[in-house]
Amino acid sequence: MKKRALRAAFPHTVPVMTGYLFLGAAYGMYLRASGFSFWYPLLMAVTIFGGSLEFLAVSLLLAPFAPLATFFMALLIQARHLFYGVAMLEKYKGLGWLRPYLIFGLTDETFSVAATAEPPANVDRGWFLFFITLLDHSYWVTGALLGNLAGSLIPFDLAGLDFVMTAMFTVIFLEQWKKDRQHLSACVGLLCTLASLLIFGRDSFLLPAMGGILALLALLRKPIQKAGEAP
């Protein structure tokens, strides 16, 4: 049963594998260049498992100790995960002891795959979701370790490979667009974030964008629900 779930889950994680191995390696190299041994990427990749915060954590580790600021900055950066939880409330119901790990591993990329991928009929849904999360987690840890230990050995220039994440979110956006009967929510997400980026700049646009998305989805609830009903 587990083997079948693993085999069904793997193809869905290939784009994440490419992106995580590359970004993880970049992260490991960044830590090495900042003077940290492989224990640091190993510990952080396993326990935090969240790329953008882990990159920031490196500069926090190099700065004077500031626990309160660290905690609040981490909360702000990770706040977008609140959305993923709300979106996965129903899907992650009734999965027993696998559930805490699924929630722990709910990164941007894992969320995207777990929210859209459907297991084949003969595959257990819980184990399918578990292996998606576990595979993603292991790609990230492997990438971080490889980058830290062997980063200087890579003979070719991989600049631009991180675009695979942008491409993945774009393709998943298109798939979700096909699945949704209404497209207002997709437009709200795209335009609201874009507007917020233009107004607040790239360092502080995400929270206002999330607030705006919530407000607009609440305001537009009637038309969205009406448009989403089966004809």
């Binding site: 993923y84 979106a87 996965m88 995207s112 956006f173 979700q176 929510s185 709200v188 997400g189 964008a209």
Partner: peptide, 19 residues
């Protein structure tokens, strides 16, 4: 529950801009 239904579409738009 309504948010759970409509958020994924909005989130992927948000993530594209974020990238």
């Amino acid at each position: 529950r309504y948010l759970g239904d409509v958020l994924p579409g909005a989130i992927f738009g948000m993530l594209i801009v974020y990238c």
